[in-house]
Write a protein that binds this DNA or RNA. Structure first.
Length: 514
RNA sequence: GACGCUGAAGCCAAACGGUCAGGCAACCGCCUGCAGAGCGGUUCAGAUGUGGGUUCGACUCCCACCGGCGUCUCCA
């Protein structure tokens, strides 16, 4: 299995610090505003990473921190006239709700900065004792020049960092130094420390909490590309100066979500046309920079979590993703082909696709007996899927393979005419079931197709369903009498209400247009 | 300026130096009373911005140039 390591800028073979176990630390949100789609990218990717590693036989511990003390939290909670802790609580709940809507439920711990102040103080003190940090007034700064390796992650030299040092420049020995501990001004949330009342700096909590939960050296550290500098650079400096050993073996950074200039993407307009006076193009850029990032909970009203997950995983994690509703809708169209197959599967086998047993371990899947034409095809698809995932978690390539697998299964149903005479073909049904099993095994590693998406039929208590049964019955009578005009009219009128009828050999099915 | 990313069909997009996955869209065919779905095919590649180089062989590696973009102490 190979992983791209930001540290070496290369793919490397995954060799955990302790064999068979993988510790993952992903930088989570600063909880001062509702999360936007950008906050979901990392969790979704690492959810798939964890599932795949577990599938591959590793014992995985995945930690996502919650930064609940910070200048932005202080500012926002003041603006809203509430306590910082209340704001943090509200936004943490929002974040976790969004995660669960996305099916991200493999995170083992959500440590909070404010619950680890002792560890933070201890780590800061050690850095002072070792001469890497100094007190200045009631602040403590990390002295960048003392760390020979500083800049190794972002590949910058200290000399290049010609910043002015921010508001606190005059208290620092060098403008590049950064705060480990900030003395409190009156009215700010504060904790007691050897340097007076204050609060942690931005980066120190990750050093403290990753050590506490995963150890001084762990395997994978993740986050958005935008965190490489300064956050991760500073974090790795603190941790490694403190412990004298590597903090994380592999640094994985995901590409950022970008707001797409939608007009420019539609209808093949030429670039000149879109460049002139196109506001959408002007606003294109990273989501969440400041404006334009609408709350993720709003997006969830338009698309269900699995659709967004599928969208996020359908491209490689290191590549930036253009976000637009059109793009998600396009992806959803493809996703629905899977859902249609699941219904077809139920019609032909009489079994719920979502109850097909999931093969949880790769080694078990390897032992599945697959024979016959379909079996051979399944083997091939399974192998290509695994190859893609083994190569730096290439979920985009893996999903491509899932589509091919899907087509093979549909074709098998067609060729064997399973829609009509499935009961007469037990061997073919058995083969199809194996196919479903492989599909579930593979998709499961991406966290896909674990449960049927919530049908948003509204609050009609099943009344629509009963009505539709009546409509279908009357329409069937009309068609039986060759009154196709009436039959077609019913179908057409229902379609205008967003109700789709599909005639099949086994009868007519209805569904809501999405 | 520094550190990076990127340029492939109408659009999105995967790819250890050797056969350019896959999806969306459109059209055609099979199937169907018709439609939808599914399947097959086409649009769909003078090989991937331009020009060089390395190589038996380059989307892939190197150089230059032309576009697009990100980060540089608020960021996932």
């Amino acid at each position: 299995m190979r992983v791209y390591n930001t540290l070496s800028r290369q793919k490397e073979t995954l060799e955990p610090v302790s064999p068979g176990k993988v510790g993952i630390y992903l930088c989570g949100p600063t909880v001062y505003k509702p999360s936007h789609i950008g906050h979901m990218v990392g969790p979704v990717i690492f959810d798939a990473v964890k599932r795949y590693l577990v599938y591959s036989g590793y014992q995985v511990t995945w930690v996502v921190n919650i930064t609940d003390v910070d200048d932005k939290l202080i500012k926002e909670s003041n603006a809203r006239g509430m306590k910082m802790s209340e704001l943090a609580e509200e936004m943490t709940a929002d974040y976790k709700n969004n995660l669960s809507a996305m099916g991200v439920d493999t995170i083992d711990a959500f440590p909070k900065a404010t619950e680890n102040i002792d560890e933070i103080i201890q780590l800061t003190q050690t850095l002072i004792d070792k001469g890497f940090a100094y007190q200045s007034g009631s602040d403590v700064y990390f002295e960048v020049l003392k760390d020979k390796e500083y800049g190794k992650l972002s590949r910058r030299s200290v000399e290049q960092m010609t910043g002015e040092g921010g508001d606190m420049a005059e208290r620092k020995r060098s403008p590049a130094d950064f705060a480990l501990w900030k003395g409190a001004k009156t009215g700010e949330p504060a904790w007691k420390s050897p340097w007076g009342e204050g609060r942690p700096g931005w980066h120190i909590e990750c050093s403290a909490m990753s050590r506490k939960l995963l150890g001084e050296s762990f395997d994978i550290h993740g986050g958005g590309l935008d965190l490489i500098f300064p956050h991760h650079e500073n974090e790795v400096a603190q941790s490694e100066c403190c412990h004298g050993k590597p903090q994380a073996k592999y640094w994985m950074h995901n590409g950022l979500m970008q707001a797409s200039s939608e007009v420019g993407k539609l209808g093949g307009r030429n670039t000149r046309e879109t460049a002139v006076g196109d506001q959408a193009a002007q606003e294109a850029g990273k989501i969440g920079k400041s404006k334009g990032a609408s709350a993720f909970s709003e997006l969830l009203k338009q698309f269900d979590g699995e659709t967004i997950r599928f969208f996020l995983l359908s491209t490689h994690y290191r590549r930036p993703i253009d976000f637009s509703n059109e793009r998600i809708e396009e992806v959803r169209t493809g996703l629905e082909t899977f859902y249609r197959f699941f219904k077809r599967y139920e019609r032909t086998t009489g079994e719920d696709f979502y109850r097909v047993p999931v093969t949880l371990k790769r080694v078990e899947g390897d032992q599945l007996q697959l024979s016959g034409n379909l079996g051979e095809a399944l083997k091939g698809h399974r192998q290509r899927f695994i190859e893609a995932m083994d190569d730096d978690f290439n979920t985009g390539g893996a999903i491509g393979d899932l589509f091919e697998l899907l087509r093979a299964l549909n074709k098998y149903c067609d060729d064997e005419k399973l829609d009509n005479v499935s009961s007469l073909k037990p061997e073919a049904i058995a083969a199809l079931k194996q196919g479903a099993r492989v599909l579930r095994e593979l998709a499961g590693t991406l966290g896909l197709f674990r449960a049927a998406p919530q049908a948003s039929t509204g609050d009609d208590d099943g009344l629509v369903g009963k009505l539709m049964e009546l409509m279908i019955k009357y329409r069937a009578d009309a068609r039986k009498n060759k009154n196709f005009a009436l039959g077609d009219a019913i179908r057409k009128d229902l379609a205008e209400l967003g109700l789709i009828l599909e005639d099949r050999p086994t009868g007519t099915e209805w569904s809501l247009k999405r």
